[in-house]
Each structure stands twice: as structure tokens, then as C-alpha cells.
Design a protein around this nucleic acid. Structure first.
Lengths: 229, 229
DNA sequence: ATATACCAATCATCCTACAAATTTTAAAGG
DNA sequence: CCTTTAAAATTTGTAGGATGATTGGTATAT
């Protein structure tokens, strides 16, 4: 195996090591990393080199620097950050098509691989969802809706799928959240969730895919209605 | 609405401007960008600041620096580069599931939106493919196979879908290429391509999705066979 | 106890200098 | 004139130091 590290410049070497520290969890998300001075000694590089490495990871969304305070770990995987940045410039309906593609596949895989724990979690979200409706706590309802969809994708056990899906879901949600101040649409959604859970429980891939399609079609219509085509 | 702190630091400001220069095509892919000294003056920042901005974009995969030579534009969108880096650490079958999800959706969208130009291009690849088979030019055959799949996704007219799909296709292909030294599988593939084209021409979304599924299932079996489960 | 002023830590930016790799230019030799 | 070789110029890589700006905590005064 060819060792690429020898050819890598110092900055990339340091950046790679820092990435590993983050991915391995040695540097926990949300916490501060050591200050520049310390890292200069630890990696035995100059300030410039270290700063270029850190800047690269800041730009990638893994770190966040705050003058006077320090540098914190912002995220453990850079793909999500890159995707989020990208989709900011993308039309909502384009994102929705990709989300549909991913969630449909996820639902099918979930139907195959689902464990009892997965089913329990999905059921729990539906139950809590009902309570939220009863108490008219719409913010909570939306939160649980997101959790349900994420849980379906998590049950697929495909990490690439998961890492691609979550940024899209969050982007779409942040777009829609403000606008969708509780119209009747969500009533249907609950039923669809129940149907989807049944399909996943019964390991019925086709039905699972169909329900995701139905849900996404409903959402698409709402978005078109609200954004005025 | 809260203004998202226009107080970007200098490095990010420069990086953003450079990104725009690349995306707009002012700095063409493959060509050199001005040397540091020139850019320092152009952006009116110090060398450190400029270098941090450039380094961020190098890490993101947009630029590539070569000591003594200069800096060239490597790619016009960073998402592909981030995805490629990510999937290097991902199992082939996981990637395949995501590729299936994306290509299936793309085929359906292509069936909806396809233009005559799209159809002509797809047909052309199939024709050339036949010639390649006749002359037993397998390298050419594989190349055309890739072109066909890309063309299907391009016909979807969904840029996010396109930008996500291509890195996955290339990754899978580079994995498989060496191993798949021409066994009988590709014979079937040609038929599937013809069927898929027919479905897209006839705007039959379900059939298009089915043919993509069939193809991917075939590929999955080959991969499992070759990698020994 | 609260508010203010001060101080220390930390990142942001700038500057200069030299090293290493590449490209360009110039010279030398046939 | 052409090729080869050597020197010079160009360009990025790395190092180290200096100053400014922001934050967080501490001590002081009221």
C-alpha cells in the first residue's frame, strides 16, 4: 500500500490528524479544542501551518472558531456540512425529489432490517405525536414528526444514507416550518406514519415505499401551494 | 428577520469570493489561478489570510496547489469532492443502495422530463455500445456504460441529484472496474439499457424504476460474488 | 451585591524571511 | 540550428514574530 502521507504537505497531515481526533470522539462535539499554542507544540508545526489546517476544517464545518474564546468542535462528519452549504442554493422541490429517493430506499431497507427496538421507537413517536395533537402542542408535534422520519432512515442501517438524509430533512424543515403554521395537512400525516410503521413491521417493502411516496407527494403539493408554484 | 452576522472574518470573505469566481466560470476548471502575490493585492489582504482562504478551498476539493508551479482549479462544486472523500471509507454495498435510490428517482424524473435530445443521446450510447461489443473493445464498452447511466441522471434535470450521483458512480466503477474483467454480466446489461430507454421514451415511470432496480440487483450480485460476500 | 475597570487568554491579521519545488531563461556544446 | 545543461526567476511551503480585537474572568470601587 502506498503511503500518501509522505507526499502530503504538513497542513494536510495536521488536518487529517485533527479529523481523526474528531471522528474517533477524542475531541467531543461541542467542546473546546486546545488553543493554538498548545497544538503547535503537539503537532510540532508553526502557527501558520496549524492555522491553515484548522481553517480548512472550519470551512468544512467540523470546527468553529471564536476570537477571544477558542475553537470548538461543531460536527463529527463533514459531509453533512458540505451538503447543507450546497443545498442552500438549491430549489426546495429539487431537494424534495432527492429526499424522496433516499427516504423511499431507507423505508425499504428498514422493512428488511428493522429490529424490535426500531419498531418500538417508531411506535413511541407515534404515541407521543398523538398526545401532542391532543394538547395542541404543534411545535412538539413537528419535532416528533422529524424524529419519526429520522428513525425510519436510521433503521435502514446504511450510514451513507443517514448522513445524506439528515441535512436534507433539516433544510426542508427549516424552509417549511415557518410557513406551515398548522393547516390541516398534518392530520393526514399521522395516518401515513401509522401505515408506514405497519409496512415496516410486516416487512412489506413495496408498501413502505408507497407510503413514503404518498407522504412526499402531499408535502410537495403543500410546498407548491405555499410558495405559489 | 435576524441578519446572519455579515461580520464574516476576512478569510471566509476571500474564500467566498474565490468560490464565486470558480462557480461563475471566471476561473476555469483545470486552469491556473493568479499567484499569491497578485491575489494579495487584488483582495487587499495579507499572505496568511489569503493562504488560509486558499487552503480551505484546497481541502474542500475546489483547488489544488503545487509547490513551485501554482494553483489550479480542480472542480467547480465542492459537494462531489466531499462525497468522494466520504465514500472512500464506506462499504461498497452501502454505496450501491444509495446509488440505486438516486438512479431510480432519476430514471423516473427522466421519464417525465426527457427531451428529444435526451433520447437521442441515450440511443447513441446504446448504438456505440453495440459497436464496442462487436469489436470487443471492452474498455470502450465500460466507458459507454458509464456515459449511459450519467445521461439518464442528467435527463432528470435535478442538479442536486446529478451532483450526488456522479461521485457514487465513479467510486463504484473504480472499485469494480479492475475486477470485472469481462464476464458475461455485461451481455444482460445491454438489454436492460434498451428496456430502460424504451420506458423513458414511453414516459413510463414505473417501468423505468423497475429496470434500474433490475440492473442494480444484477450488479449487487456480481459484487457479492467477487468480493466473497 | 452590582457595576466598572482591568487583565489574561485566545483567535485574527499582518509582516518578514527562508526553504523547496517547478518553470523559465540563458548558456554551452555539438 | 538543435539539444543539453546550468543558472535564475517564479511560486508555493513553512517558520517565527508582532500587534490588534474579542472574549471571559478577576479585582476593585461604590
Amino acid at each position: 500500500m502506498i503511503q500518501k502521507t509522505n507526499k502530503m504537505n504538513l497542513v494536510e497531515q495536521v488536518a487529517t490528524q485533527i479529523e481523526q481526533l474528531i471522528e474517533s470522539g477524542s475531541w467531543e462535539v461541542g467542546k473546546k479544542i486546545p488553543p493554538e499554542m498548545e497544538l503547535m507544540e503537539k503537532f510540532d508545526v508553526s502557527r501558520n501551518t496549524l492555522r491553515e489546517a484548522i481553517r480548512a476544517l472550519v470551512h468544512a464545518g467540523l470546527l468553529e472558531t471564536k476570537q477571544g474564546s477558542g475553537t470548538i468542535v461543531r460536527s463529527a462528519n463533514s459531509l453533512g456540512a458540505a451538503l447543507k452549504r450546497y443545498v442552500k442554493k438549491t430549489a426546495l422541490l429539487e431537494i424534495l425529489d432527492v429526499r424522496l429517493a433516499l427516504e423511499k430506499q431507507a423505508a425499504q431497507l428498514a422493512a428488511e432490517h428493522r429490529t424490535e427496538a426500531d419498531l418500538a421507537k417508531l411506535e413511541e413517536y407515534i404515541q407521543l405525536s398523538r398526545q401532542a395533537v391532543k394538547s395542541k402542542d404543534w411545535a412538539q408535534f413537528i419535532e416528533l414528526d422529524i424524529c419519526f422520519h429520522k428513525a425510519v432512515v436510521l433503521a435502514s442501517t446504511n450510514q451513507l444514507l443517514i448522513d445524506l438524509y439528515e441535512p436534507l430533512l433539516e433544510t426542508i424543515n427549516s424552509f417549511v416550518q415557518d410557513l406551515m403554521a398548522m393547516n390541516a395537512t398534518f392530520k393526514f400525516e399521522e395516518e401515513l406514519h401509522i401505515d408506514l410503521l405497519s409496512a415496516i413491521r410486516g416487512q412489506n417493502k413495496e408498501a413502505a415505499a408507497t407510503y413514503v411516496e404518498n407522504y412526499m407527494e402531499l408535502l410537495r403539493k403543500e410546498i407548491i401551494k405555499m410558495t405559489g408554484e
